[in-house]
Design a binder for these strands. Structure first.
Lengths: 225, 225
DNA sequence: CGTAGGTTTGAGGTTGGTCAACAGGTGTGG
DNA sequence: CCACACCTGTTGACCAACCTCAAACCTACG
């Protein structure tokens, strides 16, 4: 992204505000007139079913547009929740429409960001369908480390993840009890330390092996788009 | 999509050809220079893991762009397989680049199609994580009926689905044996008939109830984009 | 007529869910 | 200050869902 493109985005992104932990950033079924950029904190997209079960379909870290797809989809097919206190800002769909009408390259980059979202979704589908829960959990940890390292939030192999185990279980589609037991096995094998919302990876080689983790899908490599 | 936009697309979509059932349409890890439109037949995106397990991450019906995301992602993070004999055509990324540089509205529509892909992925994640297998299977059937009805491929509550049960199992992340048993329960309850690749829905109300199916995510409603 | 691919069924074992209890930390009101 | 509720994490017991292995069956096709 060129500096002039960054300038264009900065001009249309407005209304910084804080959302408290647990607060709704976007509510399911709404038709927002703007899209939300997450400046700080963690957020999740989620759906809740009739019987009260909840599934988290995406996690967002600082720098992510949490609902750029709503610019095209119009109606939110899921909610977005603040997993920690979140600093957010918004870009009006009217302004995004202006950008897409006049700046083809910037449009491609915005499009790209929604396409990467899709790639992450596919990776999650594979993990949910065909990996063991242990592998799936390892994969999630690897993904979070990779994504957080881009924004400089990994220090000494450690990240801060403000999710309760119940929330992680809703990411993996697992019961809270079983998530806890799976987590114990990774701890017992000396692969990770996970205490008080701090996760430290002790053996990246082994962990990424268990997860069969290949970060290619996150598109971290630089190339012309 | 206006008729002039359709004309633009028609000019860049070339090279009709047939891919035999079971053939690769796009191979994992490749860097295609064009994107593929499925004109006729069924295709699947899939990944296979080290232990040989396969997960299908998306199904495609006639009219779908099967790998438009590769225009932006560059590298295919999964393969695309012909589930039946498929008639396909391709649009060179060079030409798509030309369209996106000059036609903002058409670009939005292409973008929209990748965003709908993402919405379907999320729906699958929810189904895999928090629905029973019976409900998940019912949901898949409902989705296929909805998508195929758009392209006029539902007749008398019946669709033709050229997938083996092993392939359906790879969609749901289920073993072949258990898929078969789950399928039996839907048959036994008089909800569907599924014989020789013909699926007939006998009780849409009950089936969509079990699936908690809400087609909103498919964006079937007409509105300005 | 034999083979291959797909479907169906049964048996037995593993994974993961539900229920229940307990521990530690925190905040609140008496 | 203590008693209490509440939230999160942890553990055990038991049960249901689902997997694997195995075999039988059916059809299409050489």
């Amino acid at each position: 992204m060129s500096s002039s493109e960054i300038g264009i985005l900065q001009r249309i992104i407005k209304n910084d505000r804080l959302v408290p932990k647990g607060g709704d950033i976007v509510v399911e079924g709404s038709r927002p007139a703007e899209s939300t950029l997450l400046l700080d904190g963690f957020a999740a997209r989620y759906r809740v079913l009739e019987d009260g079960k909840r599934q988290i379909t995406a996690l967002h870290v600082p720098g992510d547009f949490v609902d750029l797809h709503a610019f095209l989809l119009k109606t939110m097919d899921h909610g977005v929740l603040a997993l920690s206190e979140c600093k957010i800002a918004t870009a009006a769909h009217r302004d995004l429409g202006g950008v897409t009408a006049t700046n083809a390259h910037l449009t491609r980059l915005l499009w790209l960001s929604t396409v990467i979202d899709g790639a992450i979704h596919r990776e999650w589908i594979v993990a949910m369908g065909r990996r063991s829960k242990r592998s799936h959990l390892a994969h999630l940890i690897c993904e979070l480390f990779s994504r957080l390292s881009i924004v400089g939030m990994v220090e000494e192999n450690t990240i801060r993840l403000p999710l309760s185990q119940a929330e992680v279980a809703d990411v993996l589609g697992l019961s809270l009890v079983h998530l806890n037991k799976t987590l114990q096995t990774l701890r017992a094998d000396g692969l990770i330390r996970w205490v008080d919302h701090q996760i430290t990876v002790l053996d990246w080689g082994e962990l990424s092996q268990i997860a069969e983790f290949d970060p290619a899908y996150l598109c971290l490599n630089r190339e012309a788009r």
